[in-house]
Design a protein around this nucleic acid. Structure first.
Length: 471
RNA sequence: UCCCCGAUAGCUCAAUGGUAGAGCGAGCGGCUGUUAACCGCUAGGUUCCUGGUUCGAGCCCAGGUCGGGGAGCCA
């Protein structure tokens, strides 16, 4: 008897003998026809559970009648056309073997009832057994696979940039230290500071906050590259859009400017949405029905319309003219607040907006300095871009990189950074430099955008956030 | 880190400073080719922690812990 997945079973015509293995979602009993039980069995391979009909003449029916939500079972039977409403096929069981009971149904953390997401976070090891978190897990996989396929189809190479970094020059926020030093009796320098020369790497090391600087080196040889891996920020961020450990997609393209970068970002987002709608119609219909009404229409709209490319200088003008009372003032040269970004993408344009050419003073040292007067800006700008999307805010941040060594050095000095730390990054500008650009896409933010889920802690299996690393 | 809100049964929430309740879930029974099933019965409590006010605290006060919403940092 062939063991097939529930997903396969739904695609199979009635008739064959099959074995199904999975976990009980619900059990319903009937005394009709001499007695029978209906078991909804899920194996997670697709959104729906399959109905198993277990008749009272099965030798272990007394056990079957005690099955509760969460029990693991192996069912042998025949795939048949369903006699009832609500499903096309079901399994008429010839044997139901109980692989694992639920100890105490009264305290099983995820019985078949409504749960809040806040509660389910406390039982993250079991929450994936619910409809929502099963769907999240499958969508997450589908998007991740689509990312690799998108780049592979375009001759990008996947670069495994390091998780541990010895350079303290990534400049994208607080970092987690990686150390094997004895924290209680740590070796000290004569000055009394911890002596990192004695540490594992012989220097102070941290978890990466971005793969960008490393991936730029491979870009300068392989032309089109990307990295997709975990990223760590030790910021004390307590929001529904930040994690201490998150996954980031960072492509880097050689002989490319900001326009090419923005075009790549847009093409990628649309490719991913289209692939998701094609490959996961069951889960996406669930999100549309239960999580965000109108989700499917919203995503289809994103695929169809071009992103709005909006110079920062123009964005400020729109915000200043807006008939809305903002909590924070709008002024050229200031970074846009969340409320400003949300206004642009949610109220004014009602679609994804790519804001480009930000003031130099508020952006990172590696972003390429624009020619004076770009977009009619009153001061220097850099070729940076942020892709803002409704409901999430900043989905992507990127830029054309400064490829001119003299300009880069001036920026490093200007920002008070320690030039020798950047020796290998500067080398790229000495040995055959070329214009190049790239961006970072927050994978969990993409998940929020695609599923309509509200909290970023609910779109990653085991969220890492301040005071949260239980599982 | 800042502002606001919250913590009571397994879960979601009620309860004027005076005997702690409901819905869902769970157990048992009834009914039904059932499917958000339905009907009946039953069990289930250190009211987050520490201290204070009071004859008496789930309720008032102080501190803490944890959670949620918003902000900052950003992806």
């Amino acid at each position: 008897m062939a063991w097939i997945t529930v997903k396969e079973a739904f695609k199979t015509a009635p008739g064959p003998a099959v074995t199904i293995k999975g976990w009980i979602r619900t059990r319903r009993d009937s005394k009709a026809d001499g007695g029978l039980s209906f078991l909804a069995v899920s194996d997670g391979t697709c959104h729906d559970a399959i109905q198993v009909v277990a008749r009272a003449d099965l030798p272990n029916y007394a056990d079957i009648a005690k099955l509760t939500t969460g029990c693991a079972v192996e069912v042998e039977g025949t795939l048949v056309e369903s006699q009832g409403q609500g499903q096309a096929v079901e399994v008429q069981a010839s044997a139901v073997k109980v692989a694992g009971w639920v100890d105490d149904p009264d305290t099983y953390p995820v019985p078949q009832k409504r749960h809040t997401f806040e509660y389910l976070r406390e039982v993250a090891h079991l929450r994936v057994r619910t409809n929502t978190f099963g769907a999240v897990a499958r969508v997450r996989h589908t998007l991740a696979a689509a990312i690799h396929r998108f780049f592979d189809e375009r001759e990008f190479y996947y670069i495994h940039t390091p998780i541990i970094t010895g350079s303290d020059c990534e400049g994208a926020g607080e970092m987690f230290r990686v150390s094997t030093l004895d924290m209680v009796n740590c070796p000290r320098t004569p000055g009394g500071e911890p002596d990192f020369a004695e540490d594992f790497f012989g220097k102070e090391s941290h978890l990466t906050v971005s793969g960008q600087l490393n991936v730029e080196t491979y870009c300068q040889a392989l032309s089109r590259v990307y990295t997709f891996g975990p990223t760590f920020r030790a910021e004390n961020s307590n929001t529904s859009r930040h994690l201490a450990e998150f996954w980031m997609v960072e492509p880097e393209i050689a002989f490319a400017d900001l326009a090419a970068d923005a075009a790549l970002a847009e093409e990628m987002v649309k490719y991913l949405l289209d692939d998701l709608l094609t490959k996961r119609p069951d889960d996406m219909a669930f999100f549309d029905l239960r999580i965000e009404k109108g989700l499917l229409d919203r995503l289809k709209g994103v695929i169809e319309k071009p992103f709005r490319i909006l110079p920062y200088t123009e964005a400020i003008e729109i915000l200043q003219k807006a008939n809305v009372k903002f909590e924070f003032p709008v002024a050229w040269g200031k970074d846009m607040q969340s409320e400003h970004e949300r206004y642009l993408t949610e109220q004014h344009f009602k679609q994804p907006v790519t804001v480009i050419n930000y003031p130099k003073a508020i952006k990172a040292f590696y972003m390429r300095v624009n020619d004076p007067g770009t977009d009619g800006a009153p001061a220097d700008t850099v070729a940076a871009m942020d892709v803002l999307v409704p409901g999430v805010g900043e989905l992507i941040g990127g830029s054309q990189r400064e490829e001119r060594l003299d300009v880069l050095d001036a920026r490093i000095d200007e920002m008070g950074l320690h030039k020798p730390d950047y020796w290998w990054y500067r080398d790229l500008r000495r040995y055959g430099t070329c214009p190049h650009a790239g961006f970072g896409l927050g994978f969990e933010r993409l998940m929020l955008f695609c599923t309509g889920m509200q909290n970023i802690r609910d779109v990653i299996p085991f969220p890492r956030a301040p005071k949260q690393a239980e599982f």
